[in-house]
């Protein structure tokens, strides 16, 4: 029992990541407003980036800039520095997330100019009404 408790508590960063991912998926699936959906997508992306940064961090380590040797061995000890490889990967992911945000917001603006609203259910109703009218015109 104590083992399980230690396992749950010591991995608190990953629990936070899971909660954030669930919040993002909930916003994408169940919110009707398109801006809210886009923000849910962004929360999801930042949660994934947080997951990768948590993988790279370790206890009693400083930032990955080489400024001192180990005082006992007078050599560079990799345990003194956090792992910089996930940082470099996630730097790319941040730029990609801003690009997807810009594209999604421009598409939302175009949808607003076409339909006059950002609510998804109203847009679906308008598309269905347009299709009905078109089919009536075709039958005539």
């Amino acid at each position: 029992m104590d083992n399980y408790l230690f396992f749950i508590v010591s991995k608190f960063n990953y629990w936070g990541v899971m909660i954030l991912i669930m919040i993002g998926i909930y916003a994408i699936i169940s919110k009707q407003n398109l801006i809210k959906k886009i923000i849910g997508m962004n929360i999801f992306q930042t949660a994934i980036i947080l997951f990768y940064i948590s993988i790279g961090s370790k206890k009693n380590a400083s930032i990955p800039i080489l400024h001192h040797l180990n005082e006992h061995t007078q050599k560079i000890n990799p345990d003194d520095f956090v792992n910089p490889l996930p940082h470099v990967l996630m730097l790319t992911a941040i730029v990609v997330s801003v690009a997807t945000l810009g594209v999604a917001l421009s598409l939302a603006i175009k949808i607003y100019q076409q339909f006059g609203t950002l609510e998804e259910n109203i847009i679906n109703n308008k598309i269905a009404a347009d299709n009905n009218r078109q089919s009536v015109i075709d039958r005539l």
């Binding site: 980036i49 790279g56 400083s62 930032i63 956090v82 730097l91 941040i94 801003v98 917001l105």
Partner: peptide, 23 residues
Amino acid sequence: IMGAVDVAFTEASVGAGVSTVFL
């Protein structure tokens, strides 16, 4: 806090700055 300073300042300029302006 987790030691990823390069990611942190990229997020501060790009995520908190440009994303808010876009939104």
